[in-house]
């Protein structure tokens, strides 16, 4: 067996490729994933493609669709290499090719808004068939829920740190609540709020708030308790009142913890908003996904998924940027 390689040597050693062929690692991985995706499209869609080819008069083996149904996808690919030309452009693919998803994404965002009858250019309002509109619907609920959840979370954490009773009675439940799948509550919250006349943005925001609440509580309690004994003793020698200890020592020390939990909370908040859109089909990315799965529009699901992913990345990135700026201004980061 090979001996453990020197970690320092490993970092600079070449992989045997000429330098100009060596891609930056992340780019290399993304390209590899795209390549795998394109290859996977062929076996995933082979049955539909062969059926279409048969209809167009191409000879396929075995000729009967019933026989084909029970065969493995790869076996069909190997037996019909000549009939697979349409794999990457089939109408209702099980797995759309990446460029099909991009086309759908373009059609349902830019094209719909610029050229569509209900688009913003012709009607003055965002089209309810465009992903821009649905993304904004989801984003609204995400933000509102996140704001409520984060504020309540910080408030409860301050209470827990200052009151032994609250600490001992609430904290164990807050920790346990992290272990349960809270989204299971989502459909019930939506329906119950609907039955008492609350609908639209609020129910989704409630779910989002609920999901973002607990990470903030747990993170902030940790953060508010992070000053060490020496720092606390210093405050005691000043005979500082509790409020000053909170504002001058505890809150500033908790900022890194706050941002760490806010990043988790906003991602959870987005998931909450999406799941909250499933039971009531009134717009939003979750509704788009469910509609796509009802009508077999895979490209539509993928496009909505891509937008959701972009939103999540953007939101987490925004908080990370805010974190960097804040910490730098506080002198906690170079």
């Amino acid at each position: 067996m090979a001996e453990a390689s020197d970690p320092k040597a490993g970092a600079t050693a070449g992989t045997g490729w000429p330098r100009w062929l060596r891609l930056p690692p992340v780019l290399g991985m993304v390209l590899a994933l795209l390549a795998i995706w394109y290859v996977a499209v062929v076996p995933m869609n082979v049955k539909e493609v062969l059926t279409a080819a048969e209809r167009a008069g191409v000879e396929v083996s075995p000729p009967s669709a019933v026989d084909r149904r029970d065969m493995g996808n790869w076996a069909l690919v190997l037996r019909n290499p000549h009939a697979l030309g349409d794999s990457w452009s089939s109408d209702r693919p099980k797995l759309p090719a990446p460029h099909q998803v991009l086309v759908e994404l373009y059609d349902s965002t830019i094209d719909e808004e610029l050229n569509g009858r209900r688009g913003i250019v012709r009607s003055g309002t965002l089209s309810n068939r465009s992903l821009v509109y649905h993304a904004l619907v989801t984003l609204n609920a995400t933000f509102l829920g996140f704001l409520i959840g984060a504020l309540l979370g910080v408030g409860l954490a301050v209470g827990i740190v200052h009151s032994r009773v609250m600490d001992m009675s609430v904290m164990p439940w807050a920790i346990v609540s992290q272990t349960i799948p809270i989204v299971a509550l989502a459909p019930m919250i939506i329906v119950v709020l609907y039955s008492i006349g609350v609908q639209g943005l609020i129910p989704k925001a409630v779910i989002s708030a609920y999901l973002s609440f607990f990470p903030v509580v747990v993170g902030m309690v940790k953060g508010l308790r992070s000053p060490d004994a020496m720092q606390m003793d210093l405050m005691r020698t000043y005979s500082a009142p509790t409020a000053s200890v909170l504002t001058k020592l505890r809150l500033p020390s908790s900022i890194p913890y706050l941002f760490a939990s806010l990043k988790i909370a906003i991602a959870a908040s987005l998931v909450g908003a999406i799941v909250g859109e499933l039971p009531v089909q009134k717009g939003g990315l979750g509704a788009r996904m469910l509609a796509g799965s009802y009508y077999g529009q895979t490209a539509q699901i993928w496009a909505a998924l891509l937008v959701a992913a972009a939103l999540a990345a953007l939101l987490v990135y925004a908080i990370a940027a805010l974190e960097r700026r804040t910490l730098r201004r506080m002198g906690m980061m170079p």
Partner: peptide
């Protein structure tokens, strides 16, 4: 960090 639950409709279809 992505909302991977969103892949659920696709995987249920597959």
């Amino acid at each position: 960090a992505l909302p991977i639950v969103g892949t659920a409709p696709i995987l249920v279809m597959w």
